[in-house]
């Protein structure tokens, strides 16, 4: 579900405006840096999962062993 990053109220996926209908926050850029950091954290979790998975493959074990 799509939510406003500021007031967290529901937004329709087909609403294309730049500002939240409820609180007027900039949907895309509100606390942009913090949200980027959240993405980075999420990406890292996935990264570790994949590395662990690759480490289980015998022919790749050397390369990805930590």
């Amino acid at each position: 579900m799509r939510k406003c990053p500021k007031c967290e109220k529901r937004l329709s996926p087909f609403y294309f405006g730049t500002e939240c209908k409820h609180c007027g926050a900039d949907i895309l850029y509100y606390h942009f840096d913090e949200r980027l950091e959240q993405d980075a954290a999420k990406a890292e979790v996935q990264e570790e999962k994949v590395q662990r998975l690759l480490g289980k493959l015998p022919f790749l074990r050397k390369k990805y062993k930590n």
Binding site: L36, D39, A40, K42, A43, E44, V45, Q46, E47, K49, V50
Partner: peptide, 15 residues
Amino acid sequence: MNPEGEKRYVGYGEA
């Protein structure tokens, strides 16, 4: 934790 030089914003899922 990855060093800063290895930072990513796009995870495997999105890629």
